[in-house]
Each structure stands twice: as structure tokens, then as C-alpha cells.
Amino acid sequence: MIDIQSIEKINLDFSRCVHCGLCLSACKTEALGHDFEKRILFREELCIGCHLCIEICPRGAISSFRLNSN
């Protein structure tokens, strides 16, 4: 079982995001998607913290943080 508290989750900085879609091409769990207006939509509950989107984002809009049980 995955220790959910040890996963580094992602944070999306929408002030940097240009809503292209490159992060979608890396996301395997559909945590990242487009809404009906084609804006990037992040569903945190689906994120498994693989971080593939972080390195693929051309705007440096995605960063990680560690979940803390406290």
C-alpha cells in the first residue's frame, strides 16, 4: 500500500501556467486535464506524485511539496 503521507504532491501556480497541455501528456492518472473552457484543471485527489508533469512544464508552473501528517 502506498504511504499517502510520504508522497510529494504537486502544486500548480496558475500565475505562470499558460494552459497549453504539455502536462497532460505526462499525467497517467488524469489528475491533470482540461476544463470545458480548455483551462488546465488539477484534481489533487487523483495525483500520485509521480512528478512527470513538473519536468515537462515549459513554464515552471508546477512544483512539489511533501504532505505532512501534522
Partner: peptide
């Protein structure tokens, strides 16, 4: 649509351009 058919396989595809910003 977000996915394409390629030789019988479904492949997820994503844009490099922003349709939102284009609008």
C-alpha cells in the same frame, strides 16, 4: 478529443498550444 486511434491502440494526446489563450 484527447486520444487518438493508432494501429488499433488508443493513445492519449495533448496540445502544445493553448486553446484557452487562443480563444
Amino acid at each position: 478529443s484527447g486520444s487518438i486511434d493508432l494501429e488499433g491502440r488508443k493513445i492519449n494526446v495533448a496540445p502544445t498550444s493553448s486553446i484557452y489563450k487562443a480563444r
